[in-house]
Design a binder for these strands. Structure first.
Length: 483
RNA sequence: GGUCGCGUGGCCGAGCGGUUAGGCAGAGGUCUGCAAAACCUCGUACAGCGGUUCGAAUCCGCUCGCGACCUCCA
């Protein structure tokens, strides 16, 4: 609320209520959307990892978003595609869910839709009216920001806006401004015109709820009047979150959330993504490689790693080079996990135990400090060379038994459970068959190599390279991986 | 125009008063039939110009660039 980091204290020991503003489902998911929800997924996963019982609510906005000309976004989508509004909603909700699954985001505990909570929203409008923080005009109901602000309720506090500025502000080029007493007032109920497709009965008019209202109503319904964490993209800070606070304060005089988290924007090549100047890319294009901005396709997990390798509060710059680096780093992480499965220890105390335990501790410390995933990853990379050294070290004495056990447990928990990365190699097709075939080929090649028949050995290796399979001849035999 | 934030080595990205972030790329080396991988070593970076300080990437001011919000947006 004050724009600073604070020590987190849950309202109820052991439980966390978290509300994240979800997407408006009127077109295909934007990449930035994917990143935001992936970053909150990391936060959700880490809270679960810490043992909290988390109720994670993420809404689907399927009504109430106005375009510049005052038309509902969903209705507009419906007109263009010649579909029922709910058909549009379903189509893009499905697409959104598919993308969330592809990026391995956990499903929220509750995913409420705005249109399924019209009654709750009407009730909230009534409460705000009853409390005197709203007024009706021509069938629409507006929130009275000036009265609210003058009573010291803190309008503008979250986004750092000053009341005087708001009062002084008087832009006259806004639409639907006619009935408002002041430009900063906002609609909590809108009267629908005849052509409007989505409308409901209310005490004031046949109309639809204002777009900030759904989050207030639904978060209250499922998490209570005040809950722990509220999050969303940076661009929602004002006016959306500010108005949400006003609505909650206006209806029940309570702050909706104790802690606000805002993710920062995704850029491409140092500039904002913008359809108009072509500086844009879709999740699908990244996955297929079908874009002039990239030289190859990227796997879902490579992309997920890319998104998580920057802090949630920082902007992230998407570049071809950066993506390629992320893909390699992700693979190295997975190979480390594989190596960890294979190795064992022959000593109680290893020579590297101390530094490894220190790095593990730091990894946790960084996650505890405002979910600093980049630093946590750096700690993991402090450990990786030690794992590889232990592997090639015949004495197996650099890592002690106990340390190796906790290393196996904690790294896989952090990488798989918290970061949500899985090994794509293992789910890539029928892994048992492929594994068997590869073992066979590796054995055959070992035979010809023993006979110093390098030509045959290289033929096998080159052939596999053509299939994007890489062979690595090590001390203890040959290993393989997908390129 | 107003409010706020950012500008870090070839690239991505942490740090935010004194200590090596980390990754990718690049260079050298060890190992290896060769290759790849792995391991070791290396770059001495903080937009520019001033100021504060024993000491600044980190604080202050100005300039330039980028971005967010102010109007729908994750």
């Amino acid at each position: 609320m004050n724009g600073k980091k604070e020590t987190f204290e849950p309202i109820n020991e052991g439980f966390i209520g978290m509300y994240i503003c979800g997407p408006t489902v009127y077109s295909d998911v934007h990449l930035g959307n994917c990143m935001t929800f992936t970053k909150f997924d990391l936060i959700y996963r880490y809270l679960l990892y810490l043992g909290y019982k988390v109720r994670y609510v993420r809404n689907i906005t399927d009504v109430g978003h106005l375009l510049d000309d005052g038309e509902d976004r969903i209705s507009k989508g419906a007109r263009i595609d010649k579909l029922e509004p709910m058909e549009v909603v379903q189509k893009y909700t499905n697409g959104f869910h598919d993308m969330m699954r592809i990026f391995n985001n956990k499903k929220p505990s509750i995913e409420p839709r705005a249109t399924a909570h019209i009654i709750e929203q009407i009730e909230m409008v009534q409460q705000i009216l009853d409390n005197g923080y709203a007024y009706e005009a021509n069938g629409s109901v507006y929130f009275d920001t000036i009265k609210f602000a003058k009573e010291g309720k803190g309008y503008g506090q979250l986004s750092g806006r000053k009341i005087d500025d708001l009062i002084a502000e008087s832009r006259d080029d806004l639409k639907n401004q006619g009935d408002k007493r002041h430009p900063s007032d906002f609609a909590i109920w809108m009267k629908a015109d005849e052509n409007h497709l989505m409308k409901w009965k209310s005490p004031w008019s046949l109309g639809f709820p204002g777009w900030h209202l759904e989050c207030s109503a639904m978060s209250t319904k499922y998490l209570g009047p005040t809950f722990d964490i509220h999050g969303g993209g940076n661009d929602l800070k004002f006016p959306h979150h500010e108005n949400e606070i006003a609505q909650n304060m206006g209806s029940c005089n309570c702050q909706p959330a104790n802690y606000w988290l805002h993710t920062n924007m995704l850029l491409m090549n140092g500039r904002k993504m913008s359809k108009s100047d072509g500086n844009t890319i879709t999740p699908t294009q990244l996955l297929t490689g079908n874009s002039e901005h990239i030289t190859q396709s990227f796997s879902p997990m490579a992309l997920r790693y890319f998104m998580l390798h920057s802090h949630y509060r920082s902007t992230l710059d998407l570049t071809n080079e950066g993506l390629i680096a992320a893909e390699k780093t992700y693979k190295r992480l997975m190979e480390t996990l594989e190596t960890l499965e294979q190795i064992n220890s022959s000593v109680v105390t290893g020579t590297e135990d101390e530094t490894i335990m220190k790095s593990l501790k730091e990894m946790h410390m960084h996650m505890m400090d405002d979910f600093n995933s980049p630093r946590a990853i750096a700690s993991i990379f402090e450990i990786i060379p030690k794992i590889n050294t232990h592997k090639s070290n015949d004495a197996k004495d650099t890592i002690g038994k106990d340390v190796l056990t906790s290393l196996k447990k904690e790294l896989s928990e952090m990488i798989i459970d918290v970061f949500g990365l899985y090994n794509e190699k293992e789910v890539n097709g029928d892994s048992n068959t492929v594994d068997g075939l590869m073992q066979l080929l590796i054995e055959l090649r070992a035979n010809v190599r023993a006979n110093k028949d390098w030509a045959s050995a290289d033929k096998i290796r080159d052939g596999l390279t053509g299939l994007k399979i890489k062979l690595k001849d090590g001390k203890d035999g040959t290993e393989w991986s997908y390129e």
